[in-house]
């Protein structure tokens, strides 16, 4: 009787879990398409070449408005850049340091140990430069949005003309996947706006995929190590479960 009850509860619980997703914001909700990324699935990994191209897209396009203040240049070593390459990348940016012995703040080229340079000194300056809209920090953006990497990719490729009858507010742009469909950010990716050193064509889809891969790595740099450890842990525990169960059955043999 209890077993049947448990089965019923499991079914109910499963149904509830499947449907208890965060409710959509106002406006007809368009389901986010499932995009295949190199890091999907239990054994997925970040395509290093794609992530490096994605960093280039970020640096040349997004970094004009969006900071990633939780990352440091030294973290880029994990994407396969050498120490010299990271030092070279960092030194392209000027960061504020100080106070010096005269009590003044000064600018100097960034080092590997510095955080990514933010385009604006504070949120108010960011809003002021963008018509009151704050360009969100992208350090953990794929974790901060329902749908994760799929959503970010859909957003970047989801710009289109507004359907007939929809009036756009001033300064807003139509996006198929943004909740409410009106987004303050203009279409950020145009074909060929970036030149990839490895010759990959800079289509909007490629750039969107590469920058999404980069952002997904930035949000969860431990992902590959986490999954690899998980496989080992669960295999170990499964074997241990078998052993402990055998011991338990043996101890209980005279009782059953």
């Amino acid at each position: 009787m209890v077993r049947n009850t448990l089965k019923a509860l499991a079914v109910i619980g499963g149904l509830l879990a499947a449907s208890a997703l965060p409710a959509a914001a106002a406006g007809p909700y368009v389901p986010i398409p499932d995009t295949r990324f190199s890091f999907d699935g239990i054994f997925g990994a970040f395509d290093r070449a794609s992530a490096q191209r994605g960093f280039q897209v970020y640096k040349e396009t997004c970094a004009a408005c969006h900071g990633m203040r939780l990352l440091s240049y030294r973290h880029l070593r994990e994407l396969g850049f050498t120490e010299q390459q990271v030092a070279a990348i960092a030194s392209q940016f000027q960061v504020v340091d100080g106070p010096n012995d005269e009590g003044q703040m000064f600018e100097r080229p960034a080092r590997a140990s510095d955080r990514f340079r933010s385009p604006f000194p504070n949120r108010q300056a960011a809003r002021a430069a963008n018509n009151g809209a704050y360009p969100v920090d992208l350090s953990i953006i794929t974790k901060a949005r329902a749908g994760g990497a799929d959503y970010i990719y859909a957003l970047l490729t989801g710009y289109q003309d507004p359907p007939p009858g929809v009036e756009m507010m001033e300064g807003m742009h139509y996006n198929r996947y943004f909740p409410g469909h009106m987004i303050a950010m203009a279409r950020p990716l145009m074909p060929d706006q970036v030149t990839f050193a490895d010759g990959t064509p800079a289509t909007v889809e490629n750039m969107a995929r590469d920058v999404t891969t980069f952002l997904a790595w930035a949000a969860e740099p431990e992902l590959e190590q986490r999954r690899a450890m998980g496989v080992k842990v669960i295999l170990f525990l499964t074997v241990l479960a078998g052993l402990v169960y055998a011991v338990k059955r043996r101890i209980w043999a005279d009782v059953h």
């Binding site: 239990i42 999954r227 450890m229 998980g230 496989v231 842990v233 669960i234 525990l237 241990l240 479960a241």
Partner: peptide, 14 residues
């Protein structure tokens, strides 16, 4: 306890 750890590990790692 081991079964509980398996469920826990599935959550934490995956």
């Amino acid at each position: 306890l081991v079964i509980y750890f398996i469920v826990f590990a599935a959550l934490v790692f995956f």
